[in-house]
Design a protein around this nucleic acid. Structure first.
Lengths: 345, 345
DNA sequence: CGCAGTCGTGTAATCGATTCCATGACGATC
DNA sequence: GATCGTCATGGAATCGATTACACGACTGCG
């Protein structure tokens, strides 16, 4: 593979001149520039990003450590992150933590070793020493979706409180009184917050959220199945299950189906995070939709701001309720088109 | 950030000794080793992967250029690729081509500039000059899922022919005679092959595949919707639509639903690529399942073989039919459990 | 006791870029 | 015509690692 020296030799100039042409520095004669460009062309030369990064101490790369790529919500987040980053001249390296703190640390370490310019994290736990060290060392960082309390890092996330209130209003209106939730890991902010928002919304209707109706999940389908089975085995099972993410909703659906029961007749179901397939499930699933693409883009902008020395601020966007049929009688009118979901709030 | 020089100074040895300790080279005294490790500890030193890569001309990184991350099939592929690569001591950088040749080239160029050790590609088109140049230049490469004919690169893929035959047998047995397909782009091997396999399987039953029953899709949901609408507008619409990937099946479902029609009564539906949600759609969708995880792992092994100087061979694994209810009367027995899908062949 | 071989260590070259500094040519100004 | 500034260019240092080579100390053997 041709190096800058080869180009310099071919063009009959010094490496300094080649470098200047490549970085279009003003003081290069038109003639030298032409000769260099011709040499670049004939040799098929491409600058070595590794060498360049060593010298400039910049990689123009962002790290994205995500809780679980197989979760469509995070897949979409990753996609929007990459798009916005590309638009701003950065590449993205994704690390999939699979909801495992050890894997998360592995990826953070790997990304730091590669000297990425900044880190976007959706933390799987309450903050490992490694992550806290990275923050202390001044690594530009932004949290997205989930965050670690008490750490001075901008957070870009959706606020589900209003939507959860809308959901509970909807459920209450359908006559449901025994409402249960499949929570995410207590170590995550979203795991805790969604339970709190739910409890608070129930309180407004004078309803309780007993411990037996709080199932401990881990944001994976299997835990949704397991928790739902537990709910169904209760002497007084809930009438509604609210899954704190879409994968646990899938598991809940599996569990209900395995018992030969039906949604919503035997058990109503709602989920946090809307995905395209929810329109076509049996029945279509009522969900709380996050502005995922906008979150990803805002997170990248905040991170790049930090990297380039600007403040980089936190952003909170509202989530919204999308009513379908999984909680009971269909809404007044069907969704106008399969492509767009109707919001009720 | 501390460098190897700082460690050397702290430990009172030369940088060479530090490097030897770090790469556990045999000839270092126990005492020097201890002092170096202590210094590494107190400084929180981590080797700079950029500098190391420059010197060793190895990045221990694989590039994965994938057609579309939002497609669950590719998401799963990416996940298994990363897992196997990690097990073999490599990291993976993913580039999402979004089915766009220009984006694909962008990512290939970017990865090449970063001097990745090898490239895993699921080509979106018939092979850009850039990609062909990379092959010619000797970049270790392996194609996965799709490939470019006439290029000497190992291919790891699933063979769907048997499963497509099984599917057509199933459809024929249900009494369907007018079968249509939503094809993928003709520039991709999977786009062409699936049509050919379908045509051939139909032939075995004396059935034709008229041009009107071949819809041109692009592996994205919108095209599935558009093509299905076209089919439904035909004077003699097909009885079955076979979508060449799961996203186009989603689009087909949208289209059928928008007309107020039902699957399978008004139009039967089958898809290439099985995903977890197909169990819970209305109705559950009959699909051809690829051994996705095994494909990803095999592809990484082949690529790493190439990188480390071993041959690196092509692998073809069989896909299998998973019968559900989207084509007509349910199979003899229901799926035994939601977690495992029953194969019929 | 002397010589060869082994072992631990340091010096310095190297990877491929960027960039500071020096130099020479040339034009403008007084 | 001397002086100064600008411009194009090249030489060399530098980033942070790895590694070939040299060297001194020590061991073992004849």
């Amino acid at each position: 593979m041709a190096s800058i020296k080869d180009v310099a030799a071919e063009a009959g100039v010094s490496v300094a001149t080649v470098s200047r042409v490549l970085n279009d520095h003003p003081s290069v004669s038109a003639e030298a520039r032409a000769r260099v460009l011709a040499a670049v062309e004939t040799l098929g030369y491409r600058p070595n990003a590794v060498a360049r990064s060593l010298r400039t101490a910049q990689t123009h790369t962002l790290g994205l450590v995500i809780s679980d790529v197989m979760n469509p919500y995070f897949t979409e987040l990753a996609r929007s992150v990459e798009e916005e980053a590309r638009a701003l001249g950065y590449s993205v390296i994704i690390g999939n933590a699979d909801e495992r703190p050890d894997l998360q640390d592995h990826h953070v370490r790997n990304l730091l070793d590669r000297r990425i310019d900044g880190l976007l994290v959706s933390p799987t736990d309450g903050g490992s020493p490694l992550m806290l060290d990275a923050v202390r060392a001044g690594t530009p960082m932004v949290f997205v979706d989930r965050w670690i309390p008490g750490v001075d890092v901008p957070v870009v996330r959706a606020d589900g409180q209003g939507a959860v209130r809308d959901l509970v209003a909807h459920l209450h209106g359908l006559g449901h009184r025994r409402l249960a939730i499949i929570a995410g890991p207590a170590a995550t902010t979203t795991g805790r917050e969604r339970v709190e928002a739910f409890r608070e919304a129930l309180g407004a209707y004078g309803l309780e959220l007993p411990d037996a109706y709080i199932g401990q999940g881990d944001f994976q389908a299997d835990s949704g199945r397991r928790v739902t089975e537990g709910f169904l085995d209760l002497p007084e099972p809930p009438e509604v299950v609210f899954a704190a993410d879409n994968l646990m909703a899938l598991g809940a659906l599996d569990a209900v189906r395995a018992r030969g029961l039906r949604v919503p007749d035997d058990l109503a179901l709602a989920a946090f995070d809307d995905i395209r397939w929810f329109v076509h499930t049996d029945p279509p699933i009522t969900a709380i939709a996050q502005p995922t693409g906008e979150l990803g883009r805002a997170a990248v902008r905040a991170l790049v701001d930090r990297i380039e020395g600007r403040p980089g601020e936190s952003v909170t966007l509202p989530a919204r309720l999308v009513v379908r049929r999984s909680c009971g009688e269909p809404p007044a009118s069907a969704e106008p088109s399969p492509a767009t979901n109707r919001s009720q709030s």
